[in-house]
């Protein structure tokens, strides 16, 4: 347990300064600049006191973690093409292979469905619509 603690502390001590130091220094510098701009140089003591207080409250490793999590975001918006290709994958139209021939006209039609041409012609006949009629059909001539 003690050994483990020692190793973790050594690792922390090895890593933390490197992680925290630049950010801390940058933060303090920015804060300094900000405070200088805001509070006129009438009270320079207060301007220097604020960064030191922040430095104490926020440990360096929290800042490092915060930055590393926030930065893991997509670099670019997914394009329309990419999004559609992803969402429509495996949903392409399938070939219709269940076909057979209409017994009434010989034209190819979908299996288990009536031939749409014959249905239309017969419905027109029922309605008494002006449909071309011939005494000799093409099949009769053959």
């Amino acid at each position: 347990m003690a050994a483990l603690h020692a190793t973790t502390s050594s690792i922390l001590s090895a890593f933390l300064p490197r992680l925290s130091q630049p950010t801390v220094s940058m933060a303090s510098r920015a804060a300094t600049l900000y405070s200088r701009q805001l509070s006129l140089p009438q009270i320079p003591v207060l301007a220097f006191a604020i960064p030191s207080a922040i430095h104490l409250n926020v440990p360096g490793w929290v800042e490092g973690l915060w930055d590393s999590i926030l930065k893991a975001v997509p670099k670019k918006k997914t394009s329309h093409m990419k999004k559609r290709s992803r969402q429509m994958a495996g949903k392409a139209l399938k070939d219709v292979t269940s076909l057979n021939k209409c017994s009434a006209c010989g034209h190819i039609k979908r299996a288990h469905l009536l031939c749409p041409y014959c249905v239309k012609e017969i419905q027109n006949m029922f309605k008494g619509k002006a449909q071309k009629t011939t005494s000799e059909k093409p099949v009769d001539e053959a």
Partner: peptide
Amino acid sequence: VNDLEIGDRTALEARWGGKI
């Protein structure tokens, strides 16, 4: 129905934008 002519079978069906 023997008098009924077998119409144009190349006309587009409704599912392809035709009228039949």
